[in-house]
Design a binder for these strands. Structure first.
Lengths: 151, 151
DNA sequence: CTGATAGTTGAAGTCAACTTCAAGTCAAGT
DNA sequence: ACTTGACTTGAAGTTGACTTCAACTATCAG
């Protein structure tokens, strides 16, 4: 493959860590853009790698793709985003992480007081009834993501 | 409704916080059991409430229903589980929570060093490339659960 | 020019954990 | 007996973030 300033989907996949199918999916939903060759193949500009890095980081912090899209939409049009642009977007994540850590710590402390008794009382046990907004988020609400579950 | 020692699905739903549809679903996959009236309606024994409390607590800690089922399968057959039985099951969660808290803390600290630079380098940035097993868990792996996302 | 390798598409499938639906049946207070 | 509210079923739908498939087509080193 010729070494140009444009990247194939395979190169982007390799360098970003996203599967080619994910890259096509992201293109479909407008998260990334790719030019095309005359034969219809995708050719990415290098800056897509930074964009993808942002997407991965945001996903790691827990943002949905919709939230990622909303964040990316605040980037300035017409010029390449600066480091400060990216920095601004990721700054808000700090508080989010703090909240998550606090919620988990609270859950753990509740568990400590619960292990000894084995109660799991629906009304009083901190484990089955954590006193935060989780219940209000509806059925299926869980504290921890599947990817971080048992090895 | 008569006050017997058996509970209707509505009563169990109310007292457990699970939707009736969730209770039916849990029965289908064998997580809980219900007797039937002559007319085919479900009647639950009271101890199902403790079992459901365990399920909720386990879900809060991040266990999948499969994992919950596996845990419940270790309960002794033939006798009603004691508090010690339930306590034993939940004891292992402590380590799990510790791990999750550590992972999030690491992510946050990585973010701190990242906000300033705005780099998001695919190879070096802690945010887009946390140095743990997350990547090995495959595409879509995220640190935080949807339920705890932005309000 | 050729063959290997990599890329293309839309539609459908996957996963988890439920929820929703429609059409009908049961339980129980009066 | 009647009425009302609660309950029943299986099948299909939901959500998010992708993956898989089958059947082609493009690119490029040699």
């Amino acid at each position: 493959m010729r070494t140009t300033d444009l990247l194939t989907v395979g190169e982007v996949a390799h360098r970003s860590g996203f599967a080619p199918s994910a890259l096509r999916f992201y293109e479909r939903v407008g998260l990334v853009h790719a030019a095309r060759t005359s034969g219809g193949q995708r050719r990415y500009q290098r800056n897509v790698l930074r964009r993808l890095a942002f997407i991965r980081a945001a996903r790691n912090v827990g943002l949905s793709l919709d939230e990622v899209a909303a964040a990316l939409a605040t980037l300035p049009e017409g010029r390449t985003p600066t480091k400060e642009d990216w920095s601004r977007l990721s700054r808000g994540w700090r508080g989010r992480l703090d909240e998550q850590i606090a919620a988990l710590t609270k859950l753990r402390d509740g568990l400590d007081s619960c292990i000894g008794c084995g109660c799991l009382s629906l009304r009083t046990c901190a484990m089955s009834n954590p006193d935060d907004a989780l219940a209000a988020r509806g059925p299926g609400a869980a504290y921890l993501p599947a990817p971080l579950r048992a090895t």
